[in-house]
Amino acid sequence: MEWEFNGEREKITTHVWPAEEPRWIALLAHGYGEHIGRYEHVADTLLRHGAVVYGPDHMGHGRSGGERVLVHDFEEVVTDLHTVEDRARTDHPGLPVVLIGHSMGGMIAARYAQRYGTGLTALVLSGPVLGRWGPIKMLLELEEIPDIPIDIATLSRDLPVGEAYAADPLVWHGPFKRATVEAFDRCMATISAAGRLGALPTLWVHGEADELVPLDATRGGIAEIRGEDLTEIIYPGARHEVFNETNKDEVLADVTGFIARHVES
């Protein structure tokens, strides 16, 4: 089911995967240029492990309003996500909340945890854009941002994943918008300066062969925000979308195992 609300700047469409007797709430934050519909199998796994799942299409993405992939300020995206959490808590009072973010969604989730982490039971960051992401610095230096299509082979070793991505009409296949690039840069700097995550249990998963968001660059960003309870899992040979990798069952088992230890303790 879907519901729509007036976000900070645009109408936001949120998908809800309902559960009859959920034990916890999962919030999903998707990555740049994609949409929450690509996380159907992730949501199904979370449902089987006791969650009710809420995931918005961020502004300018998927079925939400706004010019495609245009984000002026990621603080607004974080606030929109908090509106989703508020709705989830109204629908399911008293349940613990876990936030799961991938790539750009990992950046959004990290900033969310800095702003609203006291309300979270756990945080999962998948291939998060943190620290110093090379493409952003490179694009900021260009007078005109080129239209360079993503190499779909960098998404996953499971090649049909990239083929489906390329054929998906809800995925953005054009160039970055300059305002969005500038917003990325400001958000990463804000996260780096805003401090650590304290006692919030955090799981960081990343593909060792991730070329889109390289492991070493993210490691520096994780070091800047890591709190007292960080679990790190790096998957040898895996590329950017670990939830869509050839070992996705292993990844999702690691994620649900981590969550279970905290929502059921």
Rank of each mutant, 00 (worst) to 15 (best):
I100Q: 05
V255A: 03
Y165C: 06
I25E: 05
P175M: 06
L46H: 03
V71G: 05
A253V: 00
V242R: 02
E182L: 13
E250F: 08
L27N: 03
S103A: 12
N244R: 05
R38Y: 06
P96I: 06
F74D: 03
L123N: 01
P214R: 15
G94Q: 07
L120F: 06
P236D: 14
I259G: 02
A43I: 15
E85I: 15
L200F: 02
D210A: 08
A260K: 07
A183M: 07
K137F: 14
G257L: 11
P146L: 09
E67M: 11
G195Y: 09
M1L: 11
I233F: 03
G131A: 08
F243D: 01
I12H: 02
H173F: 08
D91S: 13
I152F: 04
I25C: 04
G55C: 07
V78P: 04
D249L: 11
V255G: 00
E143Q: 14
L125G: 03
G127L: 12
T79K: 15
H92Q: 11
G227A: 07
S156Q: 08
I36E: 05
L81D: 05
M104V: 09
V251A: 04
G55T: 11
L99G: 00
Y235P: 03
V71H: 02
P214V: 13
I25H: 04
G174H: 09
L215V: 10
V171P: 03
L155R: 04
